[in-house]
């Protein structure tokens, strides 16, 4: 069971190999990729940063919760930090369990909780040249018309 942050490109094959266990009958993995559009804006690249000690602690807590809740055999999650280009792998989650239902649900739980709780931030760089920290828009000067990210 391991939650990590890294500035290096992720290698799904070697991450998945760490889950190998003959008690497992199911392995579900999730990959989060950098995509070119968000909330109607053309994205050029993404910058991730993290408060590392707390991100690792909170991520490890999430994996422990998933293991307990879904009776997992193994689980691993790793998240990139730094400047990522379109198409790059930003986050990888993998779980193993005796049966597929638990594996699917646990994988979903881990990525959802990670996005909601782990202190990792994402700055979008747009084709227009502007940038914005995601989810940090506030009413007023950062609100924009649709409540989406405004210029920072």
């Amino acid at each position: 069971m391991n939650f990590s942050l890294t500035a290096q490109p992720l290698d799904p094959a070697s991450l998945q190999a760490t889950l190998a266990d003959t008690h497992a009958g199911a392995c579900v993995t999730f990959e989060g990729w950098v995509r070119s559009r968000n909330e109607g804006q053309e994205v050029r690249s993404l910058e991730y940063e993290a408060f590392v000690p707390l991100a690792e602690a909170e991520g490890t807590r999430i994996l422990a919760e998933a293991r307990e809740k879904f009776g997992l055999i193994g689980c691993v999650a790793t998240h990139r930090v730094g400047h990522l280009q379109l198409g790059e792998l930003a986050v990888w989650v993998g779980v193993s369990a005796a049966h597929r239902d638990a594996a699917f649900e646990a994988c979903r739980y881990i990525i959802d909780e990670t996005k909601a709780r782990v202190p990792i931030w994402k700055k979008e760089h747009y084709q227009s040249g502007s940038t914005a920290w995601l989810n940090c828009a506030t009413k007023g000067e950062f609100g924009g018309s649709g409540g989406g990210p405004g210029p920072v």
Binding site: A50, L54, A57, V91, W121, K122, W133, L134
Partner: peptide, 25 residues
């Protein structure tokens, strides 16, 4: 390096981080 309640007591030498809305994934 631990989440605390917003009304937790502060002490001399504490290391604080205010966490803006997170956006991993």
């Amino acid at each position: 390096e631990s989440f605390v309640a917003n009304d937790a007591p502060l002490r001399e030498g504490d290391r604080l981080v205010f966490i803006p809305p997170v956006a991993g994934g």
